[in-house]
Design a protein around this nucleic acid. Structure first.
Length: 211
DNA sequence: TGCCAGGCCCTCTTTAGGGCCTT
């Protein structure tokens, strides 16, 4: 296991993008980023910024996010915000809910300013499917309600969603530690959890508990 | 104006299709 992947899973950056649409390959851009830095299982820092994608956003996205074209008109450009975010995130590992979505946008926005993504992404939704198969569904808001996690009732804004994802992440770590006798879950275990067939999850956790 | 993606996972599967999740 590489030293980076052996870091504890309670020390990393949880992020969420609001965007103009679903696909950077189709020209969609980020309009807001929110992120929470977890350090030893506690929120240690936050990052939030609107960014101007250089064109108007659709009425659907205005309604979905509550972010208006007027709000974005006064926002700094994506390049400026993403450069600041790169300094914030460093080479920390990353968590997002449905990470395949956020990782595509992070890679696309970083690529536009000539930066690589330093850390490794892992997906809270895939982990939750493994750990909470009995949940009604695995949308972020549903899981927050299912686990009675704290929320301010704001959804589809980047920092609020990142905060809720961070709380869900910490809850999953706590449940794993309690149910499987783990002292502190390594990042690599959470990464493996999202890649492992359901029938193999128990064996994976047994091995980790015996380490 | 209208429409767009992609990875994971399940099953009436694997020579495939469709739901879930993200904006």
């Amino acid at each position: 296991m590489s030293p980076a992947l052996n870091r504890p899973a309670d020390t990393l950056v949880v992020l969420d993008f609001e965007t103009t649409g679903l696909s950077p390959d189709q020209g969609d851009r980020a309009i807001e980023i929110g992120a929470v830095r977890l350090l030893n299982g506690s929120v240690a820092d936050r990052f939030q910024a609107l960014m101007n994608p250089g064109r108007r956003i659709s009425g659907f996205i205005e309604n979905y996010t509550g972010i208006s074209n007027a709000m974005l008109a006064d926002a700094p450009p994506c390049a400026e915000v993403m450069s600041e975010f790169a300094a914030f995130v460093g080479d920390d590992h990353l968590v997002a809910h449905n990470a395949s979505f956020d990782s595509r946008f992070l890679e696309a926005e970083f690529a536009r300013i000539g930066l690589p993504v330093g850390g490794t992404f892992v997906c809270s939704m895939l982990a939750a499917r493994r750990l909470y198969p009995q949940a009604p569904n695995h949308k972020l808001g549903t899981l927050v309600a299912y686990k009675n996690l704290p929320t301010e009732g704001v959804y589809h804004r980047a920092l609020a969603d990142a905060e809720m994802t961070a709380q869900l992440w910490l809850q999953m770590l706590a449940d794993l530690e309690q149910e499987h006798g783990l002292s502190r879950v390594p990042f690599a275990v959470m990464q493996q959890l999202t890649r492992t067939a359901k029938s193999s999850v128990a064996a994976l956790l047994r091995r980790e508990a015996q380490r």
